[in-house]
Design a binder for these strands. Structure first.
Lengths: 197, 197
DNA sequence: TTCTTTTGCTAACACACGTTAGTATATTAT
DNA sequence: ATAATATACTAACGTGTGTTAGCAAAAGAA
């Protein structure tokens, strides 16, 4: 009888969630079937339901896991006594890092949240809106004391976040530069585009 | 008997393709059903098949329509006798414009091409790869003659294209700035991030 | 050991999907 | 008016889906 292998400090459910992230990233939430997932886990489809409640629960888990981690970082950065541009840079670096190291989860949370259903959907959208507002507030503070170019802050946030989403392509590219080089290049372009002079 | 209304110079098939773009954008290709589409068009699901061959054909139509329009623009820009940074700016402006005015089609082509099937899939991926290579080549030329910062060109392309994809959020935002203001802000940040000094 | 709990299996359900066949009704051409 | 064509309808098909019920085996506790 096949059994789900677990590492130390990780439940069987966590194994399933992780495999689900990879599968949802590859095929998209709707196109990925529970039978696909079962095969990836090495078990029959029905067996998954000993550990999870539904397919949608997997999406909840992924989306809110990612959202919470970003919210946590935002809180941390907001209270630091550093310049606005430094705050922006730290947030960007965090985003890039997450996109490099927790690729599947972050990607799925970014692209597949539409398939959440209420009340999770509204909840997620709210968190997202809030996050962007707080990000924009940092940029606006930077504009006020001339650190940052006089631009529309929400637009800047929108550019930053989506630009980082582009790391998706980096993951798939054949001859990719190192993660460090990628990070520094992105910082150069993005922070360079914001900074005054 | 319900009949598909057509404007001048547009076939019934084009009406269907357009409605499909909106639907695929909203729900995603897999989640959007032919019965949904039929309802949007104002007709029974089976009737659609008098005009199209399959659901996938709709995706082909959309993806390659967009891809061709970008390829065409690339060709046009490449042969202009202007500086590299001006070429980049013109391409970015075109992308932004397309994302504003042909939102649904561009968005679907960007996010749902994964659901194409061979040989269309490989074909599309090739076109995409080619486009980015040619974009990167322009940037590299700009780096060589010091117009553009010494950055990794493929990374720059990746950032630019994905940043523009962020206009998706602009479309949904409640209090949005004007399309012109959006464009100028994006140009400021993106071109500003590339330009040397 | 024996009892309990966890985890897996097979079988099946109800449903939504893309698509086809066959037929009726408009529109267009003669 | 008549014939031909384009377009729509109803009904149904096969398939894949998420999920449940009921039972078997493995693991853990006593």
């Amino acid at each position: 009888m096949a059994r789900i292998k677990i590492e130390k400090n990780s439940s069987r459910k966590e194994v399933i969630v992780t495999k689900a992230a990879a599968l949802f990233r590859e095929k998209g939430f709707k196109a990925a079937s529970m039978r696909d997932l079962a095969e990836a886990v090495g078990v029959e489809a029905a067996s998954l339901y000993n550990h999870i409640k539904s397919k949608t629960e997997l999406l909840h888990e992924l989306c809110f896991g990612v959202a919470n981690s970003f919210m946590h970082k935002m809180e941390e950065v907001e209270y630091k006594r550093i310049s606005a541009i430094e705050k922006v840079e730290e947030l960007i670096r965090f985003h890039i890092n997450e996109m490099i190291n927790n690729y599947e989860e972050v990607y799925v949370s970014d692209r597949e949240w539409k398939h959440l259903s209420d009340p999770y959907l509204s909840n997620f959208q709210n968190q997202r809106r809030m996050y962007r507002k707080r990000f924009a507030a940092i940029i606006e503070a930077g504009i006020r004391n001339k650190e940052i170019k006089n631009i529309d802050a929400p637009t800047a946030v929108l550019i930053l976040l989506h630009a980082i989403g582009g790391i998706e392509s980096w993951h798939r590219s054949t001859k990719k530069i190192s993660a460090e080089a990628l990070t520094e290049n992105m910082i150069t372009i993005l922070v360079g585009g914001l900074t005054n002079k």
